[in-house]
Design a protein around this nucleic acid. Structure first.
Lengths: 180, 180
DNA sequence: CGGTACATGTAATCTGTTACATGATTCA
DNA sequence: TGAATCATGTAACAGATTACATGTACCG
């Protein structure tokens, strides 16, 4: 599976605790891969047993102790091997389309409403991505190699949301002609 | 969850066996929701226990007996209620982006290769969707209400693949400037 | 006083994937 | 003869979600 690979990837630049990793999966990496803290703690335990990450226990005053994880040579090796292997394609599962198959069964208004929600979500995400873009990736050609890769992920997000907005607009237009 | 809703949706127009449903999830519905026959049989069993579908056993000569499922009034009701409820947003999980975060760690060529595979996949799907479009949805405004909804799902697929191709092309351009 | 941030986990349940199992018929 | 289609399932495992559990500190 690849949550493990996402975790190892996050550990390349910095050593992180499970807690911090969970936050990373809420932003940045999280734009295209999400995971809850429960999943992350479980996965870290396994990665540690397999020797792909090392842990350092850091006692703290007045706060729970930390477990700071870092990438080992074996971990980096396994990540490299995985990158060379074929990429599984994303399997999209989108409830909205199941709803669309039911135009005619329920009042269109309810389906239009669902599209409206989706539209708002696209707008929110697009605004966020654009903000990140202008803040850190204004001149793509000048970025470091690593940043170029990250920028391309962001670009995919931007295109994705733009496409979604275009589709929402088409959908609203066509559904306007439905009378149920 | 919504595999159940996808199944009920498929049963609106026709009564189907688990086997036939599994095939539907390979095409049509399957463009945005996939499920294996094992999942479908398990789900049908539960839907039956809950009274959302009815079964008719059809003995056959020289072939295994069939179990033909149909939507019950309770099933339709529950589908309607679900449609009115808020739609969960799709959680995209795409390994390709994890690989992109690792530009710099491995030779770029390997990442470019992964993008090449993705590009081919987009092309294949786009060609298929376009074929279906020209065959059955050439004049969207003239479609029945129900077909309009289905067409919009197809349109989302088309836009998705077009967007993906555009992104692949951008990605290749930018990665051409990476030398590792 | 209440909420948020810090920090880690367990347990139960639900989904999804992979492998195994059966057995006739049709087509190349 | 071997592969594909029809038709149903079980079992084991992997992955994801939801709920529960604990406890301090800081900010308003």
């Amino acid at each position: 599976m690849s949550l493990s690979h996402a975790i190892l990837t996050a550990l390349i630049d910095e050593n992180l605790t499970g807690y911090e990793l969970a936050k990373q999966f809420d932003v940045s990496l999280g734009f295209f891969w999400q995971a809850s803290h429960q999943q992350i703690y479980r996965e870290l335990k396994q990665l540690h047993e397999q020797g792909f990450v090392a842990v350092e226990e850091v006692p703290q005053l007045a706060k729970p102790d930390k477990r700071v994880y870092s990438l080992t040579a074996a971990g980096q090796k396994m990540l490299e091997v995985w990158i060379l292997a074929p990429t599984r394609s994303r399997h999209s599962k989108d409830e909205l389309f199941i709803k669309l198959y039911n135009v005619g069964l329920v009042p269109v208004a309810s389906i239009v409403a669902a599209i409206g929600q989706r539209q708002a979500e696209h707008q929110r995400k697009l605004a966020l991505y654009r903000k990140i873009e202008s803040r850190s990736y204004a001149d793509p050609a000048q970025l470091s190699d690593r940043k170029k890769g990250i920028y391309l992920s962001l670009l995919a997000g931007i295109r994705q949301e733009e496409m979604g907005l275009g589709w929402c607009s088409d959908a609203r237009k066509l559904l306007a002609s439905v009378t149920t």
